[in-house]
């Protein structure tokens, strides 16, 4: 997003409004006494960070991973297990979540990226299931019931046990993620990743060893999702294998598609829409909410292939379609 307001289109104005609204959520919560909204939006922010990491490989790399939630789980467990053993220093927990998730991603990516298309979807799903059942097998850490975190993380002066501090910390991580992803996808590395999505053979013929770049992207996406996982553990004060269930991976894909593939802010809109609609429907319809939510997703897939991107285009504001 350019800082020159005169160059803004509809998309930039919406992004600006979105950030403003997100920044005002704690103020509203404080004034209205509604603490639930801050919990709900925190959850959406965490999903947005996870979905943005998926968007790097899926939206920009064309690699549909159906196992991305495993890195949420790995990051969550990294933080949770440390907390279980009495270490709640976030300055250690978050880097650990980052590196462990990244290590898993590197190994799993090295094997999965040898396949294409549907096979890639299936193999990432298979690895995620393996990690899921490994989580179920962690008897010491609650097995399939998971475990409650006795204490949330502290990062220097920041205490994530405080609802508002947790919210603002998630928002800061989210904004940093948007900025960082913006740099990455427009860098030389990003151009290679996007070029390989467009025409792999051509990129190979030009002299790019595509596999290496994809593996790097897969590793980065996994590591960053590990951060989201550690945040999720803090948000819920709880980790369980359910964090990396395949349905969770599917939700992340839906969030990315809803927000508009190939758009930096897309996953943020997608996550907010997903979490809020999911919540409201379950309030109104109780157990049957998925009967409505499912068809909504189908309609979206049929009529708004590019998610909110289509909406911005309709409003005539497509200034820099591919990169915004």
């Amino acid at each position: 997003m350019s800082l020159d307001i005169r160059s803004w289109g509809v998309r930039e104005i919406f992004n600006f409004l979105l950030i403003t609204i997100l920044a005002l959520v704690p103020v509203y919560s404080w004034m209205s006494g509604n603490t639930f909204i801050i919990t709900l939006v925190t959850r959406a922010l965490v999903y947005a960070i996870a979905a943005m990491s998926l968007n790097l490989i899926m939206g920009y790399g064309g690699l549909v991973s159906f196992g991305h939630a495993m890195f949420l789980g790995i990051g969550g467990y990294a933080a949770g297990i440390m907390a279980f053993h009495g270490n709640t220093n976030g300055l250690l927990q978050f880097p650990l979540a980052f590196f462990v998730a990244g290590l898993f991603a590197m190994i799993i990516g090295a094997l999965s990226l040898r396949t294409r298309g549907v096979y890639f979807i299936m193999i990432t799903l298979a690895f995620a299931q393996m990690v899921y059942f490994a989580g179920v097998g962690l008897e010491a850490y609650g097995a399939d019931d998971g475990m409650t975190l006795s204490r949330r993380s502290r990062l220097g002066p920041i205490d994530l046990a405080d609802r508002n501090q947790l919210y603002l910390f998630c928002l800061a991580v989210l904004l940093f993620t948007v900025w960082m992803m913006g740099r990455i996808v427009n860098s030389r590395f990003g151009m290679v990743l996007r070029g390989a999505k467009s025409n792999e053979t051509r990129m190979l013929a030009l002299g790019f060893p595509v596999f290496r770049y994809r593996l790097a992207a897969f590793t980065m996406a996994g590591a960053w999702c590990g951060i989201a996982g550690a945040l999720m553990a803090n948000q819920a004060a709880f980790v369980s294998p359910a964090m990396m269930h395949w349905v969770q991976s599917g939700d992340l894909i839906v969030i990315v598609v809803m927000g508009g593939i190939n758009s930096l802010f897309g996953p943020v809109y997608g996550a907010l829409a997903f979490i809020i609609v999911e919540h409201q429907l379950s309030v109104w319809l109780k157990d049957t909410w998925q009967l409505v939510f499912g068809p909504m997703i189908v309609l979206l897939a049929l009529f708004a292939r590019n998610g909110l991107d289509d909406l911005f285009k309709l409003m005539g504001g497509r200034k820099d379609g591919r990169d915004g």
Binding site: R183, I184, N186, S187, R188, F189, G190, M191, V192, G195, M203, L206, G207, F208, Y213, A216
Partner: peptide, 24 residues
């Protein structure tokens, strides 16, 4: 973009994550 990518392929590795390639 297409030609610039071809130029890029011959300027060493592309593990460069920060500078905007379209403004290089």
């Amino acid at each position: 973009d297409n030609v610039a990518l071809s130029v890029q392929a011959h300027q060493g590795h592309s593990f460069r994550f920060w500078k905007n390639a379209r403004k290089d």
